[in-house]
Design a protein around this nucleic acid. Structure first.
Lengths: 225, 225
DNA sequence: AAAATAGTGTCTTTCAGACAATATTTA
DNA sequence: TAAATATTGTCTGAAAGACACTATTTT
């Protein structure tokens, strides 16, 4: 008898990140299908591409986020595609992985099916999700070091020191207030609201995000300026 | 009657680049299968993942390069995955795209089935290969501006001005000899052979590539140094 | 007034760009 | 010797880092 060659599996997984209680967390979904591997375990939210429902892989990512995390319209960017014969016991598989950032006030609460875990103390994850998370962290930290990416983790209005704290949480270190302010101004991503906001000392200027500038960045360095 | 839902197609395409006659070229393969779209047209070399033959997507990329371009062991890096319902007339498809760099002396000659085309004057390509090529160029130029990536386009031994010319060809512009030399030294990717090599004027120092350092890079700029 | 927090001034060092000057070949 | 090519010296301005100082609030 002749076994039919199985086609490779095609899925999308999403590394969803937000600042919860001020620290960077990743969103995990409980695997809910008894017929699939790791039933009941906490894993990155993911799902198979549905050619009928999804026009693109990004559509799949948005559907997964909506269904498994209850998140509506996050910042979404393709990270990498993890593929091979051994990463999923069901056979050859490819997972197109996206990462997503949402501001704290939009982060959904935990539930039976969804929870937030601090990125630095996540326990063992199923499949190759540990490696995927590490890759996502690397990317987010790298982009944070030369762009305005962390704005997607921030509310629409922030003070300089709030934003600096967000950068520090993502990077894991402290930043010079003076230099930080200079670079933010240089990237042209914030405009003053004119209002002030106090947090127990001198009130801070409140800035509004200039819309859609979260990926503004500083120029590279080898090219002549 | 009930149409069976077709699974999505999974393929790998490769943007192969080399310096031919000193200018950056991309390798194109003639589409050889009469049963497939764009039969006879010149396109990026690609092929379906073969779960039986390939352990990983990178394996598929290497197989494609070997079979369609006759290239053995190039620098290979995943670029992006292009996926969606409309990019291939046969149905929902995902192409995991890699880009590859080879030094000029390893670049295979043209044939009935393979040819080199200058990256800036490539005619219309089938599928979304035009967009894929543009994305690859963007990535290579971006990495070139802060890393030693172009070493993979160079022979094992080079002079400073040869290497500078390579960078200039990739970036499309001229670079200051002084600053260029400083940055190369800083990246610690070359060691002197002690030999000299003349090209009609003062002989240049010949350097040897420090193995496996083609992706050495300068640090980012937002982080404290 | 003291503590807390925010924001600014500015000195110093480092780095990038520019380009002149020097060096060593071939024609 | 002139032309070609390579390499180095160094001046200048801009940017980054460090940090002290000023400002404005709450307690």
């Amino acid at each position: 008898m002749n076994t039919l060659p199985k086609p490779p599996l095609l899925m999308v997984d999403v590394v969803l990140m937000a600042l919860v209680d001020g620290a960077l967390h990743v969103g995990l979904a409980r695997r809910a299908n008894p017929d699939e591997p790791f039933f009941g375990a906490w894993a990155l939210p993911g799902g198979f591409v549905r050619p009928q429902d999804d026009q693109s892989a990004e559509d799949t990512a948005r559907r997964v986020l909506r269904d498994k995390a209850g998140v509506a319209s996050p910042y979404l960017e393709q990270l990498y595609t993890f593929a091979g014969a051994t990463r999923d016991a069901r056979g050859w598989s490819a997972s197109i992985v996206y990462y997503a950032l949402v501001p704290a006030h939009v982060a959904p609460p935990g539930s039976e099916a969804f929870r937030w875990e601090p990125v630095d103390t996540v326990r063992e994850l199923p499949f190759d999700h540990g490696r995927i998370l590490a890759t996502a962290l690397e990317r987010v930290r790298s982009k944070t070091s030369y762009s305005a990416l962390p704005l997607y983790l921030a509310p629409a209005e922030v003070t300089m020191s709030q934003l600096r704290t967000i950068y520090e949480q993502v990077l894991g270190g402290t930043l010079e207030p003076r230099g930080f302010e200079r670079r933010m101004v240089e990237m042209d991503i914030l405009e003053p609201t004119g209002r002030l906001q106090s947090a127990g000392g001198k009130p801070a200027k409140v800035y509004r995000q200039v819309s859609g500038r979260g990926s503004a960045q500083l120029g590279p360095s080898l090219l002549p300026r």
